[in-house]
Write a protein that binds this DNA or RNA. Structure first.
Lengths: 191, 191
DNA sequence: GTCTATACCTGGATAGAC
DNA sequence: GTCTATCCAGGTATAGAC
């Protein structure tokens, strides 16, 4: 998913991501992708078989990118406090530098165009985030409560802010809200 | 939007809401609505003109319902504490009793099928919720911080939980999480 | 692997009788 | 206001040459 696609397949994926997030999956025809990527229809169907498969491939690429990022955060940080903060900071960063990726991951209604897809919250990145919170509770960093509630309390506000950014309604850069947002998040589950 | 529609128009709206939330706007054809509601195509087009107008009408109905609910909460409760808690409690209640309504309001990507629609966060219910938080900050109930951050901190976790409920991944009834969820929310912006 | 041309059909919308 | 029959654009997907 680099910015400088070498082969046709990557070019098609990059173009599809751009158009899907801009206009939505259903408002984007294969012809649109074909024209924008300056590739033939035949080429697209050769590589992906059908339109849904483009979205699937996109989703799995992004999901595995994000999973890798979270895993590396888990390796490099010890405490739930540092891990959660790092995850939110990284999500903010991706949202600002690569909004299409975040948009497609978080915002798209995947099940509408990939019927066999699990809900997003069951995906690997989200289960890792829950796991981080669970471990923090076991370690005594986070006060005892329902683990699910703790997870949504820690990440809910940040995710909301990401949506606002993707909707283009934030006055200031997303990152400028990080400090206060994190203070609220952490305060909500401690003490 | 009653459960016992009298005229054709309401029947069409109820059916459309059901199908839109179940299968998505783009996976629902006017023919589907027609069959499910046992009404003719002509009747649908007579009342609404086109498919998008059905969604628009639906959205405005729901938006104004929710707006009314929040306004009445603002009348009946004095403090930001009580108001915010009541809003979340009510949202949970609606989600459980009328999931389609909440689904369509919160979850649908409106701008994909209603291009001239403002983003949801700019809608009346959401601006009222922000206003409640703002006033709470002026009154000194909520500690000084960016008003936007305060709003997402108060409501972010609850909204996340609602999404989880709508995705059908909660083990227990949504309302059983209310108490802890609210504790986190309020703690995040006070003290 | 890539292309063009085209088949096929779904689905939004209209016409016009009642 | 409601219905049936029909139109037709646009979109997915395929065929088959290169």
């Amino acid at each position: 998913m680099g910015n400088n696609p070498v082969d046709r397949k990557e070019l098609i994926l990059d173009t599809a991501l751009k158009l899907f997030t801009k206009n939505g999956f259903f408002n984007t025809s294969v012809h649109d992708i074909q024209k924008d990527a300056m590739v033939s229809i035949g080429s697209i169907y050769h590589h992906f078989g059908n339109k849904e498969a483009i979205a699937k491939s996109l989703f799995h690429h992004i999901e595995s990118d994000i999973t890798g990022i979270i895993e590396s955060i888990m390796v490099n940080h010890e405490t739930a406090h540092d891990r959660c903060r790092a995850v939110i900071a990284k999500f903010f960063e991706i949202t600002e530098h690569n909004p299409d990726q975040m948009n497609f991951l978080l915002y798209a209604k995947h099940r509408e165009f990939m019927p066999d897809q699990q809900p997003l919250c069951s995906s690997r990145p989200f289960s890792l985030m829950s796991q981080i919170v669970d471990e923090g509770m076991e370690r005594g960093e986070i006060r005892r409560m329902d683990p699910l509630v703790a997870a949504v309390a820690v990440f809910g506000g940040a995710i909301r802010l990401i949506f606002l950014e993707l909707d283009g309604v934030l006055e200031n850069p997303l990152r400028s809200y990080l400090h206060e947002c994190w203070q609220c998040a952490w305060r909500s589950v401690t003490g």
